[in-house]
Simulated assay, not measured.
Amino acid sequence: MTRLERRAARLAAPLDAQRPPVNALLLQVAGEAYAAPLAQLLEILPANLTALPRTAPHVAGLQVVRGELLGVLRADVLLTGRPHPPGRPGRVLVTAAGASTCGLLVDDATDLVWVDDELQPAPFHSPGVSGLTAAGLAVLDLHRLLLALPAPWRPAP
């Protein structure tokens, strides 16, 4: 088969055969790229937070979502242990951990990607990282990340 014949066959293939399905959201936290499984996300919102004074560093604040208050945590503090300088307002990833719904503040949600099921172990310790892809992208486990919070802040089971 010539190069032109292969190209013609590829272009004639159905669209779902031309590109892989997606199963993760590519996001930015403190200048680093991460992937979050779509199965763990309920929705993605623009950040419109009300700060809470005298709270732990990992608490970003509250956001009103359809008339309900949603507690939002900072992904940069949960993943790196320290806050990073604020940039743009960011995005809030809404997820459920146990019986609680919670928001996670990230810098940006940029793309949808495919992440293989077979991940390599992460060379660093973070309770919310389930592993690395072959390309070195850290894949988050949002449920484990939220359940690794200190006891008073942990979502209800």
Rank of each mutant, 00 (worst) to 15 (best):
M1L: 12
M1I: 12
A8K: 11
A9H: 07
L11W: 10
L11V: 05
A13G: 09
L15G: 11
Q18A: 12
Q18N: 08
R19G: 09
P20Q: 13
P20C: 08
V22K: 14
L26S: 15
A30T: 09
G31T: 03
G31V: 01
G31S: 03
Y34W: 10
Q40W: 00
L41R: 00
L41G: 00
L42D: 11
L42R: 12
E43K: 11
I44T: 12
P46N: 13
P46R: 13
L49F: 11
T50E: 13
L52R: 11
T55C: 13
T55N: 08
A60T: 08
G61M: 10
V64W: 10
V65Y: 07
R66D: 12
G67S: 04
E68A: 15
E68V: 13
E68S: 15
L73R: 09
R74E: 07
R74I: 03
T80H: 15
G81R: 06
R82H: 13
H84M: 08
G90V: 01
R91Y: 01
V92H: 02
A99W: 07
S100R: 09
T101Y: 06
T101K: 05
C102A: 10
G103Y: 02
L104F: 00
L104T: 00
L105R: 01
V106T: 00
D107N: 01
V113N: 00
Q120I: 05
P123K: 03
F124R: 07
F124A: 11
D141N: 15
D141G: 05
L147I: 08
L149V: 02
L149G: 02
P150F: 04
P152C: 04
P152W: 04
P152H: 04
W153R: 10
P155Y: 03
